[in-house]
Write a protein that binds this DNA or RNA. Structure first.
Lengths: 215, 215
DNA sequence: CGGTCAATCTAAACAGTGTTAAGATAGATA
DNA sequence: TATCTATCTTAACACTGTTTAGATTGACCG
């Protein structure tokens, strides 16, 4: 490779060039990521194909390889952004509440809400075989999202860090399992708005059962 | 070939015929299911292909369609058997313990053990998009497995059926989420025997945290 | 200003996939 | 023995992800 170090400024290079120009795309990475996210939103994780992403970005099927290596590379980038969005959602949900238990409940609701509203992206985030599972940035993003749980849990249980680790695993497992089962229609259909709200009510009951006021 | 038939008994109809005969296979359904389970065991859910299953059964790629319609049909049959095996494991685990809490813990361990020891089959069981999700037998098998949890939970909580429903959803979510996260290496590698045992220990802690002696 | 060069993209090909249509074969039945 | 139907094969189709070789382009440097 040996990139020529690319001066940071003072050059006729346009970072936001003509949108639909000829040979060079200019923003192909972003376009491919956006196309992939659109496919995931429309068709779910099983509906993604690299060729379709290239098609939507207006390039040949071989173009993505120059930027992401292969399909796993592109999906890894999508998953990283997914984890960042999830961490944001968890942080935001907790920030809107007072008290550790309320924060934890809010995070649980936010987690499942994220999964149900972006099922394709969510499923892809947890499909290691379709990602570069040992990518450092992916691992870091995943751990960062999990960390949002641990922060609140540590506040809640107070005990030694080992118990906090256990409690965090418990909380993550519960909401993750609930989301996964809901996405596979094990709690009824998620399609209708009524079904969605019923499922979220069930989740509320589950959280109240496992983390009641006295803990 | 044309074996001299060598009938086991005085009747031309053989339900367990020559194992590797000519045009007609004779037990193709079972052979395809067995081949599919072998692929899932060796390669995981992502490694399954219909053509490979046909190859292992010694038939052409089009042969399965006459028995299962398409790949989803074959995988649905595999998933049904998976749910039956899971229900058996849950029932067996509970039967070996005394007391509702001990039974529930044993079921949780059995559930995750099942998932970690047969990851390909387990993942396929919960991959609706690769199955005929509304197949009545599949739905029934799935509900039967979930029912094994509800039996024990009802014994544990005792309260009104609505609370039992909530508690069952909680228990299933927790162990399912734990299994899924473990399979995606979120609790460390499952590869080594040491890693596997460490994860099961973590699960024990989680169960003791969420369902302690006093409940 | 003009030439070089690396980054970027295309075209074409390859091996693989699931599914379908048409035809061959064989087992059971009459 | 002849026929009928379930079963299986062959061949084709439209896809997929990836690789190789070559075309194009914009940026840098004299």
């Amino acid at each position: 490779m040996t990139k020529p170090i690319a001066p940071a400024r003072a050059k006729p290079s346009r970072k936001v060039p003509k949108p639909e120009a000829g040979y060079h795309h200019g923003e192909l990475q972003e376009a491919l990521i956006a196309a992939s996210e659109a496919i995931l939103a429309e068709q779910g994780a099983e509906g993604f194909t690299l060729r379709e992403a290239a098609r939507r970005a207006g390039v040949s099927p071989a173009a993505p390889s120059h930027h992401f290596g292969n399909a796993q590379g592109l999906l890894t980038e999508v998953a990283i952004r997914g984890y960042e969005a999830l961490a944001d959602a968890l942080r935001d949900a907790a920030s809107r509440k007072q008290g550790a238990r309320e924060k934890l409940h809010a995070q649980g609701l936010a987690y499942v809400e994220f999964a149900l509203k972006h099922p394709g992206r969510f499923q892809m985030m947890f499909a290691n075989k379709r990602l570069v599972a040992d990518d450092p940035r992916l691992r870091q993003a995943s751990r960062a999202a999990g960390h949002e749980f641990e922060i609140i849990i540590a506040e809640l249980v107070g005990g030694p860090p080992k118990q906090a680790k256990t409690a965090a695993a418990a909380a993550w497992s519960t909401v993750h399992g609930f989301a996964k089962l809901a996405l596979e229609d094990k709690f009824g259909s998620v399609q209708s708005e009524a079904g969605y709200r019923e499922i979220m009510t069930t989740l509320n009951h589950v959280l109240n059962y496992l983390w009641p006021a006295s803990r």
